[in-house]
Design a protein around this nucleic acid. Structure first.
Length: 282
DNA sequence: AAAGACACCTGGGAGC
DNA sequence: TGCTCCCAGGTGTCTT
């Protein structure tokens, strides 16, 4: 479900309601997420004040004096603030109860998400090898090109690699490549600096625009305030297989790259002929 | 070192 | 209506 804009939207949605509040109780209803939710949270968190809600990649970091609670939404997770109790549903697995009665509830049907703990002053192993944040200056054409040297994977898989840049998932990878007019199968070592520059700008622009619209709602995503996102209305290629390109009216194609569906416009996102030959040969 | 396959899990939709 | 199959927004880990 959530890519970076959805996670950022969630952070912004929940922080005003819970920042400065003190944890009263931790409820673990189903500890089996991608990793087990640490049981000691039940005894360790109560009494602590939530200092801030931060984000690194698609991890939400709830900051306390003694460390940070890491929350990842996986494919199907959502995190909501409840100002008053609501009935507990089947996939409500984890909950923070604050002394003012506010609840922070994690729902995750597929349970690919995670709730983990990172002690103050320590770096959780999952955060160690992450690449730059796409919306900062650390992510730019130079770092991008450096990461691409000695590699020949398809550019779509490249931009979805967390070591290259974090937070670009299947939706926004497809959208950014369309915006930059790059065919998703293009080997990264054949892309010019100018094209890379366009791609960097496209990633920054699209993620920023999606955050402004509150994320992309597919199926049932809601931000921390329970409101849907509106970026889905602006998707140019993702989920539009067979429909016409908004720029040239060609029918959009779908291929699979790294076991992920990939939609693109065969006319706006052309492969160089020499490159196309190489790819079809293999 | 890089690339590819697979794993985790549930629910929804398509097709029969 | 009901069954089976395939697909889905992520990403760590294992195998080539």
């Amino acid at each position: 479900m959530p890519e970076l804009p959805e996670v950022e939207t969630t952070c912004r949605g929940i922080e005003p309601h819970i920042k400065g509040e003190t944890v009263k109780r931790v409820i673990i209803r189903h500890p089996k997420l991608r990793w087990d939710i640490p049981q000691q949270l039940i005894t360790d968190l109560p009494g602590l004040e939530l200092l801030a809600v931060q984000r690194r990649s698609k991890y939400m970091l709830l900051k306390f004096t003694s460390g940070k609670l890491l929350i990842h939404l996986g494919m199907s997770g959502s995190l909501r603030v409840l100002l008053q109790p609501e009935p507990v549903l089947k996939h409500d697995h984890f909950e923070l109860v604050f002394t003012n009665g506010t609840l922070l509830r994690l729902t995750d049907p597929r349970r690919f998400g995670a709730v983990l703990w990172q002690d103050a002053g320590q770096q959780h192993p999952l955060l160690e090898k992450l690449g730059p944040e796409p919306l900062t200056d650390d992510f730019n054409v130079d770092t991008f090109i450096r990461a691409a040297s000695h590699r020949k994977i398809a550019v779509k898989q490249f931009v979805m690699d967390n070591k290259v840049v974090v937070g670009v998932g299947n939706i926004y990878a497809a959208e950014a490549l369309f915006a930059a007019a790059i065919h998703p199968e293009t080997p990264v070592n054949t892309i010019s600096k100018q094209k890379f520059q366009k791609l960097v700008e496209a990633i920054k622009y699209i993620l920023g625009a999606a955050i402004e619209r509150g994320g992309t709602t597919l199926k049932d995503f809601v931000g921390g305030d329970g409101k849907p996102g509106y970026f889905a209305q602006e998707l140019q290629v993702y989920g539009r297989k067979g429909q016409t390109c908004n720029l040239c009216q060609s029918a959009l194609h779908e291929i699979r790259l790294g076991q992920r569906s990939t939609v693109y416009c065969p006319k706006c996102q052309r492969l160089a002929k020499s490159v196309a030959k190489k790819i079809t040969k293999n």
